[in-house]
């Protein structure tokens, strides 16, 4: 955290997180309203934005300042993918680029796949 660890530091931090996270969502919502893009396309656009930000090196300073405000939206997922790819490429050569992203995001994706599987066994969808 860049801000001091005092009560106002935390309060300001949460405010920044709320504002920046909300701003990302507003941008996506504007895309929906103005362009009629489907959610899947918008997710991919923001994911690619995250990868691009990470590649050119802007993401990390942003993430230090905005913290969860940028890493909880899918942008953070893209950035983690790109970061992993770059780190693994540095360590294992170009082939590492294909593994690094997957490895770094495997926590979230792995849990999501397993949890989805379990949920699909336990629950069934409801007609509205």
């Amino acid at each position: 955290m860049l801000l001091p660890q005092t009560w106002w530091g935390y309060a300001l931090n949460y405010l920044i997180v709320f504002a920046s996270g909300g701003a990302c969502c507003i941008a996506a919502q504007l895309l929906i309203i103005k362009t009629k893009l489907t959610p899947a396309r918008i997710l991919v656009i923001f994911l690619l934005a995250g990868i691009a930000l990470q590649t050119v090196g802007i993401y990390e300073p942003l993430a230090a300042a905005l913290r969860s405000g940028i890493c909880v939206p899918i942008i953070g997922f893209g950035a983690t993918l790109a970061k992993g790819a770059a780190e693994w490429a540095a360590e294992y050569g170009p082939l590492g680029a294909f593994a690094g992203g997957l490895v770094e995001t495997a926590f979230g994706v792995g849990v999501a796949v397993a949890a989805s599987y379990i949920v699909s066994v336990v629950f069934s969808p409801k007609s509205k």
Partner: peptide, 15 residues
Amino acid sequence: NGIVWSAASGTIVWL
């Protein structure tokens, strides 16, 4: 898209 483009990004950074 995440896999493809992160691999591309990683390769570029490496290059």
